[in-house]
Design a protein around this nucleic acid. Structure first.
Lengths: 241, 241
DNA sequence: CAGTGGTCTAGACCACGCT
DNA sequence: GCGTGGTCTAGACCACTGA
């Protein structure tokens, strides 16, 4: 079952094996899984290695241990948090709409002062500027204008971003995990330029969103200015005490 | 340093020792701590045990490891949450503005269907309806329309709510602690009626907020429909992964 | 190259819970 | 009592980093 010659560690292969058992339904929520010694014997690996695999799954919430009893498949989690940090792509998918984009601008630029401040860069540092018309089920929803520090994500300029989630790219190629974002929402009247793209009368109410996104190290890596059609887009969020 | 006869596991004692070093300032954020072998030798324990102590501190965020380099004390975390569940009163105070209100309506009413749904009450259950014009430094900011279940907060009708925080009343007299709220924001054009109150041209962009607030037992106790002037009010929030 | 953390073994004894 | 997970040892070899 496990490949001793694989570059992947044994405990990692075992983790995947267990996750497979669970997602295939062989091991169901609440079930007791075989004991650590049994698993070790089955795959001919030491108990320590087995424990490492199980330990990680426990800390990830997939399994839970009961001293003297056994290890059990956890009940599927329900995440009460309704609002998570996501990009437009995931956002629309979650609403059951098909996201797409039209790239309006995509180039190197010198950042405006407020962008420098938010991204903690100097004014002569170049940024990648990306302006996209966002559509849901083919209908215009809004316009994103995004700034990324060039020296951090230089390769981004080579990508075709029409229908791609930038967040997935950043995680895959740059090990940048969007972790937290601060945003400001306000209601403004639509300028003639935007009105043309959004196919609404000028002066229509639109939602303006400014957002700074931070990575896993609390470094800001993305500054967004976005506007969304007031008649089509509702922003949902949650506040806590 | 470690007590071999203690009922506390060695790795746990070592964890406390390391945490002590950090909180006492002997090991500062960014410092490299002694290697796993060094620590093991110092306390005469195996590397496995040392690794377990360090491993837990890593997963708790206190330490971080770099392969081939060493283990380091993490930078201290700050509570980054900037947005908390608050009412208009605290909100304005936080922005350095003086909040006040003009009560436009305050009476018993039968709730509209969507309010029943959100508050989990039946359509024939009475609610307290409170409509207030909200001002900051004497300038109109928005209008709140709030529904409270009558059978829960009957005494509320006796209060003078012009410049009072309802949340403080609820906590003091009804042991109701606002704990979480779900909200939806959108951008709409101002109706003539609201325009008069807000002293803006009709059709101006305004921020519409729908909000349901839950108490410490996850029971919804308040349903708000509010509108705020787009030119004066910016809503700030935070999203997490 | 030396030193670090990453993985792994083959044992051992203990504490817990069930029956 | 027996099987479970919890703790611990004394090794081993590997992969990565920086000098």
């Amino acid at each position: 079952m496990l490949d001793m010659n694989s570059p992947l560690p044994l405990y990692y292969q075992l983790k995947e094996y267990i996750q497979g058992k669970i997602s295939s339904g062989s091991w169901k929520p609440g079930d007791r899984i075989p004991s650590e010694s049994e698993i070790g014997a089955e795959f001919n690996i030491s108990r320590t290695t087995t424990r490492q695999a199980i330990g990680e799954l426990v800390s990830e919430g997939t399994l839970n241990r009961k001293h003297g009893v056994g290890t059990f498949v956890s009940l599927p989690r329900i995440d009460k948090r309704i609002t998570k940090l996501t990009g437009f792509t995931q956002d629309m998918l979650a609403r059951g709409l098909k996201p797409s984009s039209r790239v309006l601008e995509f180039q190197l630029a010198l950042p405006p002062a407020h962008v420098c401040r938010e991204l903690c860069i100097t004014e002569d540092e170049q940024v990648i500027f990306l302006k996209r018309l966002r559509l849901a089920d083919g209908e215009p929803m809004g316009i994103d204008m995004v700034y990324y520090p060039y020296n951090r994500f230089a390769g981004l300029l080579e990508e075709d971003l029409a229908d791609k989630s930038v967040y997935e790219l950043l995680q895959g190629k740059y090990s940048t995990v969007p972790t937290r974002s601060e945003m400001a929402l306000s209601s403004i009247a639509c300028s003639p330029e935007y009105a043309r793209y959004l196919e609404i009368p000028r002066g229509s109410p639109i939602l303006q969103i400014e957002r700074t996104t931070f990575d896993q190290y609390e470094k800001p890596f993305e500054q967004i200015l976005a506007i969304y059609r007031g008649d089509r887009y509702i922003f949902r969020t949650e506040l806590f005490k």
